[in-house]
Design a binder for these strands. Sequence first.
DNA 1: ACCTGAACACCGTTCAAGT
DNA 2: ACCTGAACACCGTTCAAGT
Lengths: 216, 216
Amino acid sequence: MTSPAGQAPSRGALSPDEVVAGALALVESEGLAALTMRRLASRLGVAVTAIYWHVGDKAALLDAVGDRIITRLAAVPVKGDDPATRIMSVCRAWRRRLLEQPELVAVVHAQGRTAELFQPVRRVLVRELTAAGLRGHDAAVALQAILQFVTGSVLTDVQVARAPSQHVAPEDLWTAADVDGASDLLDELRHPLSSDELFDYSVRRLVGAATGAPRR
Amino acid sequence: MTSPAGQAPSRGALSPDEVVAGALALVESEGLAALTMRRLASRLGVAVTAIYWHVGDKAALLDAVGDRIITRLAAVPVKGDDPATRIMSVCRAWRRRLLEQPELVAVVHAQGRTAELFQPVRRVLVRELTAAGLRGHDAAVALQAILQFVTGSVLTDVQVARAPSQHVAPEDLWTAADVDGASDLLDELRHPLSSDELFDYSVRRLVGAATGAPRR
DNA sequence: ACCTGAACACCGTTCAAGT
DNA sequence: ACCTGAACACCGTTCAAGT
């Protein structure tokens, strides 16, 4: 983690930290696919094998890069007065933050560490749901439902942002036969809500279900 | 698409269909990572370059494989009497079906064609939501909300199934500080609902919100 | 302790050449 | 029309060798 006590790094010496930082910079600027051992080495101005000495093989490198990404994205700003507002706000801000860096999300997701990435939001949500009066099992279930939705929304949109050219836009797949001739519905389906609007709508529903008035 | 009219394929001749079928079989048996042009060629008993002649480069091959996967998974069984039950049933069956073949889902997702893959469920859902009395904008919004959740659930669990070893189980990340000392909640968080239970619970809520009694 | 160079087994892709 | 073989530019990884 830290460098040897009191020992200044000698001129031009390579540290594990520098290697990982270089890898992260490479992913940010050119995408996950551009992160190869050889390209990273030439970027760092060393032989490929130096990377192996400092951080290990590519799996180890990706692990370390994943750690850094998860740490960097951890801060979650919360705004609003009542719990429902605060929950909406944190979900929205978190989603927007992740969508700004789709390649970083892809790194973490490819490692199967998505749940770990979302842990900061989980902490905030559990606090807000408790503040909203939910206890025990109810709180745990509501938390997971909301989180599942947010995760899904992010993963979907991240992939759309990363996919070079969307094959067929889903809104073009609808035909009149699908809607039994209800042309107003067809119109709606062909001009769907933006991801942002849909996200707002759905989280609001799940939040409402969790914190709103009793349901019967 | 079809072979030349009335012309029986000569003995041992390679067709685009055979190439794509071989690729799909390779993905099913050994995973997406095992699908390389060279391995496929040796599996088919031809030189690598024969693939290029029949279907083109790797992107074209993946395209064709994606088409096949989407077609094969298209059938959606619907059960139940009332719309809400039918919606639950189709979502659950669809999810279970996709989770049986995580590598196939991964192929389609990597191509950014997830929305296309989910189109059959979209068709069923729009029919059932209409039957439930939802019209126009309301139906379109409810459809997208439910679909977003199902998609997210599938993508999350597919990646968990594919990731060789989960890094840290998210339920181990909780500490007493996160829950303000509410130890019953901590217990719940550490033993969360299974993906199946959570899925049922959440879709039920979204379906209820869409088709249930008026909300105020 | 730290780093290099050569080597190996893999990739995807192109192209001239065969039948 | 259909297929092969050689070649090119890339991968990740190992290992002996240098300082």
